[in-house]
């Protein structure tokens, strides 16, 4: 079986997500070869210092994903609050102010679906703690095009509903604790296929 090389890592989370990301993102090595895209639900009106908050402890740069900006290898791009984050066929970001999806903007589903459309089997999608069902449809889209889906073990998630909803669709390639997830990501992205 041939393995499609991975080209992007997309991460979705909601309630409890900042803590989970504080575990996951600093574990990525400084030579991490892929762009990373993070979508997290925030209550609207929250301060937009998210990249600075997530930068703590990370060796990789954390920046807000701006429209028209190309995705950069080894860079963690964080979705701006109150906009959906999409990816254009030329691998640049596009923002959308369309209606909320799953009562969320940004919606994890839309970013994951968009990544699957652009990169097909080159997508590694990770869904973490959260209290809604956002992300499940996106994981299905990633899986349908041959990408890899990793879901946080709901038993270890601060809010289990979101990972549980994704697992219920049957698309998870791995169900794991946070520290195990980082191991899987590093081995998939930094060693095997590259």
């Amino acid at each position: 079986m041939t393995h499609h090389p991975l080209e992007v890592v997309v991460i979705g989370c909601s309630a409890g997500g900042i803590e989970a990301l504080h575990t996951l993102l600093p574990a990525l090595p400084p030579d991490f070869p892929l762009p990373v895209v993070v979508v997290i639900h925030l209550s609207s009106g929250a301060p937009t210092l998210l990249p600075q908050v997530l930068q703590t402890g990370c060796t990789l740069p954390v920046i807000e994903a701006e429209e028209r900006q190309p995705l950069r290898p080894g860079c963690i791009h964080v979705a701006a609050p109150d906009y959906h984050l999409l990816i254009e066929p030329d691998h640049t970001f596009a923002l959308s102010a369309d209606a909320k999806v799953n009562n969320s903007r940004p919606a994890i589903d839309l970013t994951f679906i968009s990544a699957a459309e652009v990169w097909g089997a080159g997508v590694l999608a990770i869904l973490l703690t959260g209290a809604s069902a956002d992300g499940a449809r996106g994981m299905q889209a990633v899986k349908a095009r041959g990408g890899i889906c990793i879901v946080q073990d709901p038993a270890t998630a601060q809010a289990p509903a979101m990972p549980a909803a994704a697992i219920a669709t049957g698309v998870a390639d791995h169900i794991a604790k946070l520290d195990e997830i980082t191991g899987i990501v590093v081995s998939l992205c930094c060693i095997s296929d590259r």
Binding site: L86, I87, E88, P89, A94, S96, D98, L110, S114, E117, V118
Partner: peptide, 9 residues
């Protein structure tokens, strides 16, 4: 038009 949003719509 930006392709990703157009496709969605």
């Amino acid at each position: 038009y930006a392709k990703a949003s157009l496709r969605r719509r």
